[in-house]
């Protein structure tokens, strides 16, 4: 069963990353943490963008909402984990509520509406100074741990978020909801006629795609001890997941994770040498990807090696 194999892969991957602090230095742990964050964002985007086929640019909205919720609650004296969970839950509820209003839009209109969500939230976070500290940003309590323990702790925290996102994807794939989303992606009108409650399925997918970015945002805020609106509502947070999924292959289960790893490699290898051209290099990657590898790098590699791809599973 490919289902069992995928679960085994997930467990194995989590185990390897969890063991990382025993052998690796703090720099590697930081990379691992970013990898887990990227993987969580890409897996989440894949639910709405890959499975349901709705080009969402709302990841930054969910990430920022989770980050600010977690930060504000921790400033109010909440412990980290409950504050984190509240951030994820609020992001999910926000997506469900807004989804009802914008998920009837298709194509470009949905893309724009989702993009505007992050802009509105960023503006609000900047304006509501009494709550968010406005443009000055918000400081979070620094955990009383020595550096390596801290690096290990946040790696494990982010790994937990990514593992949840991975498990959700696997559960979703074989489920009734997952099937409904595939129908919607391929022909939404026909899906409705076959009895798929398209509005409910899309809203659920949007909410699921929001929870893990919300959690990741909270973990990020706790990890960096400081957030400000342009940082956690950065539009690149909405674009990178899409790039990672395109890199790994749209609508597959582990493609997004592979894409997350590849993007991180690019970042480390190329961008460190061209710090000021960070965004431009990402732009080049995107252009090359869209023009020459529309089915993802993995698919191209498979074809290059002459093996037949199994197609989108």
């Amino acid at each position: 069963m490919s289902g069992l194999r995928d679960w085994a892969l997930l467990v194995l991957g989590v185990a390897v990353l969890a063991a990382l602090p025993m052998v690796a230095d703090n720099y590697t742990l930081r990379l691992g943490t970013v990898f887990c964050m990227y993987a969580a964002l890409a897996l989440s985007w894949n639910v709405i963008g890959g499975f349901a086929g709705y080009p969402s640019f709302a990841t930054a909205a969910f990430f920022g909402l989770g980050a600010y919720t977690c930060a504000i609650l921790q400033s109010a004296g909440w412990p980290m984990l409950p504050a984190l969970a509240a951030g994820g839950a609020l992001a999910g509820l926000f997506a469900a509520a807004v989804g009802g209003a914008i998920l009837h839009l298709r194509g470009h209109y949905f893309a724009i509406a989702s993009l505007a969500l992050a802009e509105v939230l960023r503006e609000l976070a900047t304006k509501l100074e009494w709550l968010t500290g406005g443009g000055m940003g918000l400081n979070l309590p620094v955990p009383a741990m020595e550096l390596h323990a801290q690096a290990a702790f946040f790696l494990h925290l982010m790994l937990g978020v990514a593992a949840l996102a991975g498990a959700a994807t696997l559960l979703l794939r074989g489920s009734r909801l997952g099937f409904a989303l595939r129908c919607i992606q391929q022909n939404e009108d026909a899906a409705g006629m076959l009895g798929v409650d398209t509005r409910r399925a899309k809203t659920l997918a949007f909410a699921i795609s929001a929870i893990f970015p919300g959690l990741a945002g909270g973990a990020y805020a706790s990890w960096t001890h400081y957030i400000e609106p342009p940082d956690v509502f950065d539009v690149l947070l909405s674009v990178k997941p899409l790039v990672m999924v395109l890199l790994g292959g749209l609508g597959t289960v582990f493609g997004p994770v592979v894409g997350a790893g590849l993007l991180l490699l690019f970042e480390e290898a190329v961008w460190r040498s061209f710090l000021t051209l960070h965004a431009a290099v990402l732009g080049v990657i995107i252009v090359v990807l869209v023009l020459f590898l529309p089915n993802g790098l993995m698919d191209a590699t498979r074809r290059l090696l002459g093996r037949r791809g199994r197609g989108a599973a």
């Binding site: 129908c183 009108d189 026909a190 899906a191 409705g192 006629m193 076959l194 009895g195 798929v196 409650d197």
Partner: peptide
Amino acid sequence: PPHRVARLGLARTWQIVQPFPRM
């Protein structure tokens, strides 16, 4: 809405066929 009608036992086919192409 269409999905509720469908669940009541009313099915249709289309003048222009509408399969899910990648399934």
